[in-house]
Design a protein around this nucleic acid. Structure first.
Lengths: 236, 236
DNA sequence: AGCCCGATATATCGAGTCGATACATCGATT
DNA sequence: AATCGATGTATCGACTCGATATATCGGGCT
């Protein structure tokens, strides 16, 4: 899951850990943005597997200005061992093996606990999938949502407490919304192409022509952002 | 988080681990229902802390059939859907200390990663909170959602890929839905009482009179069910 | 009768994640 | 020049997950 996200981001551009973390929050929708305690070990695993490699970034060689005076001092300070502390960002790039691993992870049909997060992540990288795989993924998601909706319906009946009922009903509504969204995506995929810029359906929440199963759609999203007002800084 | 859920369930009824797990999925909305690898250690921690204690529930009392009127034949034919294998179950009950701990956990103002799940959990137990604490909780949630919506707005702008954009816009819509829901809960709480049985707003998704901030609400739910068609069995 | 199967039930293990923290450097403000 | 906050890499302890081990019960099968 984290591996897939990392590889997907590195596919587009070489990045170092800190920047990677920011992108996980900003461009993918990682809630509360993955901790360093997960990210760095994950990068280490990927590196050990040969999926990514550290591209010597040689942070701003010996000072941009005056190649002489300032540079010498800077060089002295900067030669610290790369093992601990010391600056010198480790910029990672994806390898041939990494591209391969990405394909595998993207196409896999997991059914883990955080299904929602994984689905959203895959959808974010859907452009790398062949059209039929895309539809397969969406259909599986749809089936999952239908299943979930059925369970939510049961829970709505069972809820005795006022708050619990309100909560479950809200979840059910969110689920219906999710399902109709997925069905719109599937329809768009089967038809020509482009899912259309998300227009409100003409009537209301009825999903219109999609299928009456849309009347019961469970689930929610899974990926969501958290604050983090970082400026899109250039590295170095 | 798990502790809060366990204590909340044990407050209502004594339960053993296996049953507890089922309830976490069925009555609280625990997605993919907490693994035993989390549940049993959590119970052990709570027991060590004196918050719960095992109530020895000796093996099933001898013969359920004879005790009741004309039940012998009926019991034989009826496959006994109740009274399942009563092995050496450890039935847990909440203690005085546990009630205390429950109050603390419920009232705490965390800000962890899985904010959504924790909020939903707390809301499910909102009946145990005094009215003002309830409103405080809802207001904090609202603030959180507003913040998130702002971030989602930014992300919608930044999304270049078709799929990514569709995903973010869907998240934004779900967030708006969430926010208007919370605002309805707050309004209901401030007014007399009872949040009203979740009626569709008159127009569409406009949220109506709540507040124009509702036009941007991020997030999703967090708690959701997974299948699991278990029968509501009685214990011993 | 015997025997295996699936549900019930408790428990542990390895791997992965989180939140906190340590350590270090850079760029601003003061 | 000194402090402060952002940037940056890395590790630690506590916790969770998914898989697995173990055991008992109720029934179905031949």
């Amino acid at each position: 899951m984290l591996e897939l996200a990392i590889l997907g981001l590195l596919k587009e551009q070489e990045l170092h850990g800190y920047e990677l973390k920011k992108r996980l929050v900003e461009t993918l929708g990682f809630a509360s943005g993955v901790s360093f305690g997960s990210l760095y070990p994950a990068l280490a695993r990927l590196e050990a597997a040969g999926a990514v490699k550290a591209v010597e970034s040689r942070v701003a060689p010996p000072v941009p200005a005056t190649g002489s005076l300032g540079g010498e001092l800077a060089a002295l300070r900067a030669r610290k061992p790369v093992t601990r502390g010391s600056r010198g960002k480790k910029v990672y790039g994806i390898t041939e093996r990494g591209e391969q691993l990405f394909e595998e992870l993207l196409a896999a049909e997991t059914q883990s606990s955080d299904d929602d997060r994984v689905f959203n992540l895959r959808l974010a990288f859907a452009r790398y999938l062949p059209p039929d795989a895309r539809i397969g993924m969406l259909e599986r998601r749809r089936a999952h949502l239908v299943e979930r909706l059925i369970q939510l319906r049961v829970r709505v009946q069972a809820a005795r407490d006022t708050y619990a009922r309100s909560l479950v009903e809200h979840d059910r509504e969110a689920a219906e919304h999710d399902l109709s969204w997925i069905e719109r995506l599937i329809a768009a995929e089967r038809a020509g192409r482009q899912p259309e810029p998300e227009r409100r359906s003409p009537t209301t929440g009825a999903t219109g022509a999609v299928s009456r199963i849309a009347r019961h759609g469970p689930t929610i999203s899974g990926l969501r952002p958290v604050h983090h007002p970082t400026s899109p800084e250039e590295d170095d």
